[in-house]
Structure formats: C-alpha cells, structure tokens
Design a protein around this nucleic acid. Structure first.
Length: 582
RNA sequence: GCGCCCAUAGCUCAGCCGGAUAGAGCAUCGGAUUUCUAAUCCGACGGUCGGAGGUUCGAGUCCUCCUGGGCGCGCCA
C-alpha cells in the first residue's frame, strides 16, 4: 500500500453501504430458508421499484423448477432488514424490492460526514498494479490522439490508488524506434540550428517529417536512414549523442503537457531501457521451445488458438534486430520480477488488441500468473466523423487543443461573470477548459469512437464538466454567504423529497467508485456524478438553505457540504479540479 | 481471405455479470425566478435497440448467420 492509502485506511471508521448490508442480509435469509446462495442485490432499475432489488427468487426458481413468486414469499419472512427498510415487497416476476427508510438514509448520511473516504471501502485484496498509459513517441508531436490513453489511464490509476492498491504509473515512452533512423538522418542533413533553439520540438518534428517524406520517393535517403539506425543500434557515439539530445528535448515537451494536464508518473521506462535485456528474452523463448525460427525470424506461434493460429508474433527479425514485441516481453519481465507487480494494465488504442493478446499469451506460456489487462479505447473523431485532423491533414497538436479549451472557457467566464478580476478569470478558465476536455473523454464508454465538440463539452447543461463544477460552485457560494464554519450536525432530518433523493444519491458514491474497475469504465463514475449534480440542483431549487429554519437548515447545510465533498472527490478521482467561483 | 471492435430517439451518448413498461443530454415545444450563481429546475414530444433466426420464465445484453462502418493480420511501433 502507498503511504497515502495507508494513512486513509488507518484513520477512517469502517462503513458499509446499503448494498453491502442488504446483500449480507439476503444471504443470511436464504440460508435461514434452507436455500443456497443466489442472486444479488442491485440498485433498483426504476424509482417506482424502491431503492434496491434482488432477483434471488428468480434465479433459485429457475434452478429448482419452482414458482418464483412463492419462493420470494418464503424468503421475505427471513429478511431482517427493518432497521434500514420498509417491509420488502414482491413485484413483477418475483423480484424482491427494498425501499429505504428516511431515518436510515439520514443516519447513513450523518456517518458519511464523519468519514474521510465518504464511505468508499478499501479493496479486500490490495494489488501491486503497474499501469502503462500515455506512452508518447520521442521526436513526434503529442497530438489529440494521446488524450484518451493519458486521461483514461490517469483516472484508472487515481481510482485504483484510492481503493488502496499499490499503483505504479509507468510512462512507456517510444524512444527507440525506426523513427530514429530518419531523425538522425534529418539532424545531420536537414537541421536548422537556429530553429532548433527557437522551437526544439517543432524543428525535430520538421526534420523527421521531411526525412520521412523523402524516404518515400528517394531510395538513397531510405538507405541512409536505415544506415543511421543500424549505427545507432550498434552504439555509434555520434548517433547516440544525437539520440540523447532528441530524447531530452522531447521529454521537456511531454512534461510541459503533463504539467498542464496534472498528470504524474512514478517511473518512466522507455523502450531503450530494455535494450540490453532483449537478447536474453529471445534466447529464453527459443530454449523453452515457445519460439521457433521461421523464414529466418524468431517467431512464437499460437497453433492451439484458432484466431491466432495464422498470426505468429515475431520476436526477432530475420536481420537479427529486435522489435517492439521483444521489448514488450522484456517489459513484462521487468514489471513482474523487478517491480513485483501482480497486475499489469496497459492502456492503448484498440488497434493494438492483437499485439497485446499475443504478448500476454506469451507471458502466460512462460508461466506468469499475474493479471494482465489490455485496456483499449476508441478514437477521437472530428465533426465529419473521420479521425480528427487539421486542414492540412496532420494530427491536431495536443497543445493547440488544450490552449483552445482554455481560451473558449475564458470567453464564457467573461460573459457569465465579468466582475471577477483578471487573474481569477484566467485561473477559472484553466480549470474549466481542461476539465471539459477530460470529462468529455471520460464520460464516454471507452471503446466507442466519439465526436469532439467544443460546444457540447463546454455547455453548462447536460453531462458536462461545467455542469458538475457549477453545482460545486453554488455550494461554495452558499457557505461564503453563510459566513460560518461548517460543523456536522449529530443527526439529520430528511423531510422534503428533494432532500431524501439527494441523500440517497450521496450514499451511493461508495457503491459506484469500486464498480469502475470491474471493466475499467470511468463513465460509470461520471454518470453517477452527473446524477448527483442533477439531484443537487433540484434540491437547490426546492429547498432554500440559508433562509430555512432549524432543524431544516442544519440538515440542508450538511447535505450541501457532503455534496461538495463527493463532487470534489469524485472529480479528483477523474483528474479534474473544481473552482470556487465560476 | 482471416480476425477483432462497433451499430440503441432527429443529433451526441448511457445501459458491467441476461431481469420488470430500454434511459439521459442536446435540439423542438410548454411552464417556473421578489429567493443562496436562471450557468438552473419541472413537463411534453420523440424507439421495429442494424436485419434474420436461436437459447429461456425472461434478450439491447448470450449463440449462429447476414448487412453496414472502423481497425488489424511475420520482419514499423
């Protein structure tokens, strides 16, 4: 465990969610009824069915060939849930529905106010997780396509860490590809020194692209590039020096972007880090019989897996060189043997599905038992539904996207709240603009290609970052106006439907966060936060806070405080900040 | 040729292990403000879940086939 999570776990009092309580009570009731464990308790699919439901009777009825409703009838008397719920009811085909008592919700809400973790349980078995995300290439510009892996990976890392896992964030930088043949050729033949000083990355990209274009039409350049690459890999001093400079310049560029995006890595092991381990990897695979020589290359075949039968993985080229498959196998070794990982997550675009299926399959055949997950995502499309490109057909530079987000947010702040001073407006624009870009990405199911739209992501209506931030800001405004320090009341009274509804939502944060990691879907959390903000706004309309009288006032202030904490924490788990004003 | 991913309201998208009458937002239309940020709320309209079979008490979800789109498939990463 990291120091951070250990601190939290030692200081928080153990809380259980309603879902956990009801689940345990259900299995107790099933046992008392002489029935085996079955079914599950889930949040009700519709408010008219109460708050939670179980399909246990349906599952058991199917197994035993009995009538589901009469089975439910037998289970219900054994359900001792009176502390939290109204008497359970049978509905539909045989569902058992639970409706929470307002007093139980109020008590749970009061406990949440005392809990730093807002009720979110720690993982039962903490894992050491190496998470590989972002992974930009040296000498290539960071572009809009890097947002998804970077933002998704960061959010998953934050959530895993909060749940008590030991997370190691690794930036697997592409610092050793064939692109260096072209970059070094360009450096020696095309470099404009003045431009390099002025705009290092721009010049690096220019010589790379120029060389790349030349190789397409000029076979002499192609040969020269290949030659430079061979010399680099053979350890040629001059080429190594150039390579080193390129890497250093690119790292500066990456770090600038990470600073803006608030992304942090624990380690940065580029491909070159594994160079001296590659020969041993291939020797080992050959020795163990996993790999064989085919057409001069060393390949691993997967003849027993139909989809992979005709798709070998090459781990050494026929010219003796290694490729990224070799590096990735060495990377697995390192993460498990040197870093002690029992779990490895790799976050990349969907096109690499086949590659990582092969790599993880090799790892399993080598006897590794770690939990390997390839977490893939779709692409970002332009309004024309094609991969987002600039007018000239290039990738949209990441920096331009981030800058424009802030500029657009700045205009909106200016329009909505012109009285703020300049520095404050700029800070708010930064917070809102970056939040909008990140949230637009995370609020979508990761596998779908999504259409990038400034107007949608910066809208204050709908499932957007500004909508959530605005809920937070409204709360902060109430406390500023109240002018008093918040102190949690001993008990709450939930009288209004809007209060009860908001409080119920607040208790569900703890049920939602762990769910994200089931299938690596941060959008489950964004959906929850959107619904929470929506419940808050409805409460805000229906229930005056400062002008209400006790005991309503203390309850409402408590609901505001807790909502603010959940919004802030929830967005923080997504790598998104909240402003105090906007 | 083979393989993987995707297809849900006019538009953008949710819908994890199969569960009740498939949900939001935008757009459109209609309401709400002497009130803590109307940057909001409430309501209406809107669907053969790409198509056809199958599995079962129950299918948007699982299986098979088909259509349409994206991506990948031995020496780039």
């Amino acid at each position: 465990m990291t120091r951070f999570s250990r601190l939290l776990s030692s200081s928080h009092s153990f809380m259980e969610t309603f879902q956990t309580l009801l689940t345990r009570e259900l299995s107790r009731a099933l046992a008392a009824s002489g029935l085996p464990a079955a079914g599950e308790v889930v949040p009700a699919t519709d408010a008219r069915f109460g708050d939670y439901q179980t399909n246990a009777a349906l599952v058991l009825a199917k197994q035993r060939g009995e009538n589901p409703r009469s089975l439910a009838q037998k289970i219900i008397p054994h359900l001792a849930v009176g502390e939290w719920c109204e008497p359970p009811t049978i509905a539909g085909a045989g569902f058992i529905n639970f409706t929470l008592k307002p007093a139980a919700v109020a008590a749970q809400t009061a406990r949440l106010l005392q809990d730093e973790r807002l009720g979110v349980p720690l993982a039962e078995t903490p894992h050491r997780i190496v998470i590989d995300f972002g992974s930009p290439n040296v000498a290539k510009p960071m572009h809009i396509g890097h947002i998804r892996s970077t933002v998704l990976g960061d959010a998953l890392a934050r959530i895993a860490q909060f749940l008590g896992h030991d997370v190691i964030r690794d930036n697997h930088i592409g610092d050793w590809g064939t692109q260096f043949g072209m970059v070094i050729y360009g450096w020696k033949n095309l470099l404009d020194r003045a431009a390099l000083v002025r705009d290092p990355i721009g010049e690096l990209v220019r010589i790379y692209k120029t060389a790349h274009d030349l190789t397409k039409s000029d076979s002499a350049v192609r040969d020269a590039c290949r030659n430079e690459l061979v010399r680099l890999q053979a350890g040629d001093e001059e080429n190594l020096h150039i390579w080193n400079e390129c890497v250093a310049l690119s790292l500066q560029e990456f770090e600038a972007a990470y600073r803006i995006l608030d992304i942090h890595y624990d380690i940065q092991r580029g491909e070159s880090f594994y160079n001296d381990r590659l020969p041993a990897v291939v020797d080992r695979l050959l020795k163990s019989g996993l790999a064989e020589i085919s057409e001069g290359a060393v390949c691993v075949f997967f003849r027993d897996i139909p989809e992979l039968a005709e798709r070998p993985c090459i781990v050494r080229k026929s010219d003796g060189g290694f490729n990224y498959a070799t590096t990735d196998v060495a990377t697995i070794d390192y993460r498990i043997r040197d870093l002690g990982a029992d779990t490895v997550w790799v976050v990349t675009g969907a096109p690499q599905l086949l590659h990582f299926r092969q790599i993880f399959e090799i790892a399993r055949r080598e006897g590794y038992t770690a939990d390997f997950r390839h977490i893939t995502h779709g692409s970002i499309l332009g309004e024309d539904r094609k991969l987002m490109k600039t007018r000239s057909g290039d990738n949209v530079p990441l920096r331009e996207v981030l800058d424009e987000a802030v500029v657009r947010a700045r205009k909106i702040v200016e329009q909505k709240n012109p009285d703020l001073d300049e520095a404050e407006k700029n800070a708010i624009a930064q917070t809102i603009g970056l939040a909008a870009v990140k949230y637009a990405d995370l609020s979508q199911y990761r596998m779908t290609d999504y259409i990038f739209s400034w107007d949608r992501m910066l809208s204050f209506q709908g499932n957007t970052a500004p909508y959530l931030q605005n809920a937070y800001v409204r709360i902060r405004s109430i406390f500023r106006k109240a002018g008093e320090e918040f102190s949690a009341p001993n008990e709450l009274t939930l009288a209004e439907p809007a209060e009860l509804n908001l409080a119920k939502r607040l208790t569900q944060f703890a049920e939602t966060v762990p769910q994200v990691l089931n299938d690596f879907r941060p959008n489950i959390l964004t959906n929850y936060l959107f619904e929470l903000a929506n419940a808050f706004h409805a409460f805000y309309e229906a229930c005056p806070v400062l002008k209400s009288t006790e005991p309503a006032r203390a309850t409402r202030l408590a609901l505001c405080e807790l909502t603010a904490r959940v919004l802030q924490r929830g967005l923080d788990l997504l790598g998104i900040k909240v402003p105090e004003k906007m």
